[in-house]
Design a protein around this nucleic acid. Structure first.
Lengths: 135, 135
DNA sequence: TTTGAAGTTGACAATCATTCTCATTTAAGC
DNA sequence: GCTTAAATGAGAATGATTGTCAACTTCAAA
């Protein structure tokens, strides 16, 4: 299901490499700017296309920030959710088998099929909470 | 906490009335077009402002569609989630106390505070599945 | 290795939702 | 009725994302 007929180009490789060294969710614009800064320039449209392709292949996770921007992150494989610090963007991957089962059951009960869900938890991480308190 | 110092204007009333007769999530653009069509014209900027204010007051629920647009819907009070048909937009409100507890526990375990979460379930409703099959 | 078809890229234009600006209008209370 | 701050709206501005299309690669067959 993953990595269908995609060619290994310099650009794709650069994007993948960058995602590998990045722990938090980043927008396409951000990644594009970073690539440019690192000398490994890649066209903006290409960054978008690559990220979308990777997302479609399940190689990266996507989420929408509160203001509607798409943010990408390379994650461990398998279905999981994210606990994201709304201040510094730190991310923790979490799993919730119970949630998966629950959403599937609820959907089935209402006659829905081909179900898919999104669940993100936003909060303030311990570090940021401490920083805010001492400011 | 809700409805702080807001004036009851014709425009605000029109938006509220429209939301009351609408069952599915609709974008600001959609609502604006519908108001215009019904003769109750309201400026686009006002529709946006009103919806945001209502969302801030907790009078409407907001969610982001897959392509990043904000969609609004008037809902029953209290915390709940949505089961949305990705074809026709039909919406079912669902509650999941287990999910609430789980997300809170997980967040706490990782030192996060001031936690908030979003959970939406997308699928194909029975009607749309039937329609697709018979096409 | 050469070669051609098909997948990719990138600069830039085009979309399109959302926000901003600011002059004008309106509700609330006196 | 009069004053004032909130609210409105037309249109410009913003900004992320997508579309366009000619030029450029990759792949694999010859």
């Amino acid at each position: 299901m993953a990595q269908n007929r995609r060619r290994p180009t310099r650009q794709r490789t650069a994007v993948q490499a960058l995602l590998e060294q990045t722990d938090d969710f980043s927008s396409a614009q951000e990644l594009h700017a970073r690539l440019r800064a690192s000398g490994d320039a890649v066209g903006l449209a290409t960054v978008y296309r690559t990220l979308q392709a990777m997302a479609a292949d399940g190689d990266v996770d996507v989420l929408r920030t509160d203001d509607g921007e798409a943010a990408y992150r390379q994650c461990s494989t398998g279905h999981h959710h994210h606990l994201v610090c709304r201040t510094c963007g730190a991310t923790v991957e979490v799993e919730g088998p119970a949630v998966e089962k629950w959403s599937e059951r609820v959907a089935t009960e209402h006659g829905f099929t081909d179900v898919h869900h999104t669940l993100e938890i936003f909060g303030t991480c311990a570090d940021c909470a401490r920083a805010a308190r001492s400011s």
